[in-house]
Structures are given as structure tokens and as C-alpha cells.
Amino acid sequence: MTAAVAEYPRAGGASLKRNRRWALFTSYFFLILFAIFFLTPPYYMIVTSLKSDAEVAHLASNPWIIANGVTLEQYRLLFRETDFLIYFKNTVIVTLCVVTITMVVSVLAAFSLSRMRFWGSGILATGIFLTYLIPDTLLFIPLFQIVRGLGLLNSYWSMVLVYPTLTVPFCTWIMIGYFQSIPKELDEAALIDGAGHMQMLLKIFIPVALPGIIAATIFAFTVSWAAFVYPIAFLFSADQQVLTVGTVTSLIKADVYKWGMLMAGALVAAAPPLIVYAFLMDYYIAGLTAGATKG
């Protein structure tokens, strides 16, 4: 009896160890598989952007390696010979404005919808989210009329006007969830301590909900940085164009693709989101999962 009792945990322990080893092995296998899958396109872009046009066009060469030496010629041409820097500047202006507008509107909206009891606040909150479900490919037709009516056609300021129709609903929704996860007693304590609604928002809600706000900021940033449908519909001239559409329209001439510069442009355009994500990834994940369970 004693021997059986003594042996039982050992057998269990060995099986647990074996299970864990299998779990680790399977995890690593799939992680490596997915890493290869997702890193292949950026690798291809880097390699292509560091090749000369001649090597890119040479059909017999191996597209995965640089055979004729590394060159920064594509980047030099991109910055000197195209309007890439103008697109970049326009995108930065549009993105900064959109992120600022989005965060101001959605933080205020979420605070009032989650904390101030007023008639129809619940329906309004759901309504805001529903507007996010309408795809921009449907919205751009009526928005075209509005933008033209305002005289903003072919001006990047029209992007500052239309991008928030995508970003505000979703960011408000994220923030409502986040604010609702903040215990009600916290605002009551602040109220008794002497805080007004604005002080409560600025001194309690925003600092406490910072992960949620950062998640919403990243979302707004990504949407306005990477949007394609609206700029292609509303912007025509190079001096008003943004990165996504500008890079494609200036580097693809009918059936002539300037692959080297396209890859260099795509890489430079992807750098800011990459940097933002790398620094704020932890906050982003915390923000998206917060409020999912009662913490």
C-alpha cells in the first residue's frame, strides 16, 4: 500500500513532464512556422529594396538573396526623385490631427456614456458602435458629396474630417468598456473629496484608464496611417496625397512597377507604426482585454 502510494506521484510526475515537453515542442513548432510565414514578406521587401533595378529585373537571379552587392540607391531615388517626403509629411499631419480629435471626442463621449446617467445613454452607446460596422467602401460615396460640399475635395484636410468617422466609434467603444471597468466607488470617492466631473475625468479616469487610452490611440493611429479607400477617392494631386496611395500611384506607372522603390517606400512607411507598436504593445494588449472580466 505504502509502495503504491509512493510510486503513484512519481508516475504522475513523469507523465506531467512528458506532457509539458510535448506542449512546449508543439508550441515552438507552430510559433516558428508562423514567424516564418509572417516575416517572409518583410524580408522580401528588405532584400528587394537593397537591390539595384537591374538585379530586380533580372529574371534569372534568385529573388531571396542579394547577389550583386547591397545598394541604397532605391532609398536615394525614393527621397530625391519622388514626392515621397511630401506624402510622408501629409500623412504625419493627418495622423496627428486625427489621433488628437479622436481621443478628445471619444474620451469625453465614453466618459459621459459610461458614467453620466441620462435618458437614452445605453441606446446611444450601442448606436455609436453600430456606425463602426458600416464599411468605408459604402460610406465613401455619401462622404464624397459632403467633402465636395465643404470644398475640401483634393485637400488632405478632408482626411482629418473623414477618418474620425472610422476611429471615433471604435475608440469610444473601447473606452466605454474601460471606463465601465473602473469601480463606481472611485468616482464617488472623488465626488466626496470635492472633484467636479472634469477634475474626475482628468485626475482619476484618464490616469487609471491609461492602458485603454493608449490602445485606442494606437488604433486611431493605425487607421489613419494605413487608410486607402478615402485618400484614393478624395485626393488627386501629389502635393495633397498621403503615403498609402501616393507611394502606389507614383511608383506604379500602368504596367511598369518600380519594385525596388516600392519596397523601400513600403518599409519606410511601415516604420512609424512598427516603432509605436514595439513600445506600446503591452499597453495595447492590456487595453483590449481590460473589462472583459470583472477585475
Binding site: P183, E185, L186, E188, A189, A190, L191, I192, D193, G194, A195, K203, I204, P207, V208, L210
Partner: peptide
């Protein structure tokens, strides 16, 4: 509430999580 000159202690403490104890008490 702020003009009633009262102070309240809540069941779940309701301390401001981003502030130190000093900041909480002095808020």
C-alpha cells in the same frame, strides 16, 4: 457631496490606484 463636509470609507476602499498613499490622502 463635496459641500456637505463629510468623508466616506467604502467597502472596496476606493483608493486611487495611480496615486501614492500620500497623494490619496491629500487629494
Amino acid at each position: 457631496p463635496k459641500d456637505r463636509d463629510i468623508a466616506m470609507v467604502f467597502q472596496n476602499y476606493a483608493l486611487y490606484p495611480h496615486m501614492t498613499v500620500f497623494e490619496n490622502m491629500s487629494f
